[in-house]
Nucleic acid binder design. Structure first.
Lengths: 203, 203
DNA sequence: CTTCGCGTATGACATTTGTCATGCTGACAA
DNA sequence: TTGTCAGCATGACAAATGTCATACGCGAAG
């Protein structure tokens, strides 16, 4: 019997090791490699692509969503399962757009991980049911690319001038995008706008 | 040979199960129980106190720090190891005050968990070395109560006027406190100030 | 081919935010 | 008692932020 080969990507060493131990207790699954960030994961895959890639989203250098997109491009036969803390509709949508076959929350019982890997390996999709339901009713991201780009930086504390310089725009333009974003999100300043957008998974 | 009995407390099911799998691969350690929050953990301990309790900090209903304090009170023979994502000096201090013998970060390699449990079981203390060093050199919170109060609200997106109304101050006063905080923290606006203060555990 | 809508871009103007000089109070040491 | 020092409070002023009217190009719908 061929075991399912899984590559694990997760930036918290303790959790990475623990998940590996968990999966190795499954008779039909083997952890073929582990990585602490997306770059390392891609290097490992270049040598030997696994059948299933399990990755966290929020990681330094390269997010799991970016990784998923790149994997879909370069290793189309590898299935991707996103494993994250965050039940954000925006993340789910972007994960599916990026070609992920699975989206699982760390809140769920441990047994669901192996089961999800098996299903995805068989060609099925696996999406956390509560989140899927929420994503169905949830408002779509109303922001344009530019607005997202600017809101992101403003939310990190950059001044209008900083943002304008970095993106090669006039300050007035930057203020205008911020104003648009604030209006679209129905809030009253850039701080609330950034917080809301982040909580929805739009940034 | 007597195995070391460990009770695991962690609110994310996936991580809880994975940590249990990890520890069960150690020949001298056995996971005697698991709980998703502090209340359940105390119930389990009432029946059979483990030798070592490993707990996360941020959990619903009862934090790991509260749990540690209660365990010290009711089950003084059980050693406590805090296992958390957050490298905040303030947390470390409170953990040690609450009677924890260990403070470990989820960033660290998986092998360190078992080792920490062994050390703590032998009566030693285990504290993440980087964090201990940081806690030693770390700047103390330079903010006054008022400044904290105001920075907190500003960081949540409240306008100066909102804050002034809620705290019964004039707008000028609120701006002044914000200005003071910004200067003390060496940043250039309220957003950065709130972010920095939060990251240090001062809010 | 037009018209429309959308994303992008700008600057003038109003509002909010940040800085600074100043004053009041109470605790504590000289 | 007096000096002084920290925390709290204020308003005038300067700077950054938010709003609005406006304009241009481009692709889709008519």
């Amino acid at each position: 019997m061929m075991k399912i080969e899984v590559l694990l990507v997760e930036d918290q060493g303790m959790v990475l090791g623990a998940l590996a131990a968990l999966l190795n207790t499954e008779p039909d699954i083997t952890v073929s490699g582990t990585a602490g960030n997306g770059r390392v994961a891609l290097d490992l895959m270049a040598k030997k692509p696994p059948q299933v890639l399990v990755t966290d989203i929020e990681m330094p250098q390269m997010t799991g969503l970016e990784l998923a997109a790149e994997v879909k491009e370069r290793f189309p036969k590898t299935r991707v399962v996103i494993l994250t803390t965050f039940a954000r509709p925006g993340y789910l949508r972007r994960a599916l757009d990026a070609g992920a076959q699975g989206y699982l929350l760390k809140d769920r019982p441990a047994a669901e991980l192996a089961e999800a890997i098996r299903r995805v390996h068989r060609g099925l999709r696996v999406v956390d049911p509560d989140l899927a339901a929420e994503a169905w009713t949830a408002d779509p991201d109303p922001l344009t690319d530019r607005e997202r780009q600017i809101l992101q930086r403003a939310g990190d504390g950059m001044s209008t001038a900083d943002v304008a310089r970095e993106l090669g725009l006039s300050e007035g333009t930057v203020r205008n995008y911020l104003s648009e974003s604030i209006a679209k999100l129905g809030v009253s300043n850039r701080i609330e706008a950034a917080r809301l957008a982040r909580s929805k998974g739009w940034l």
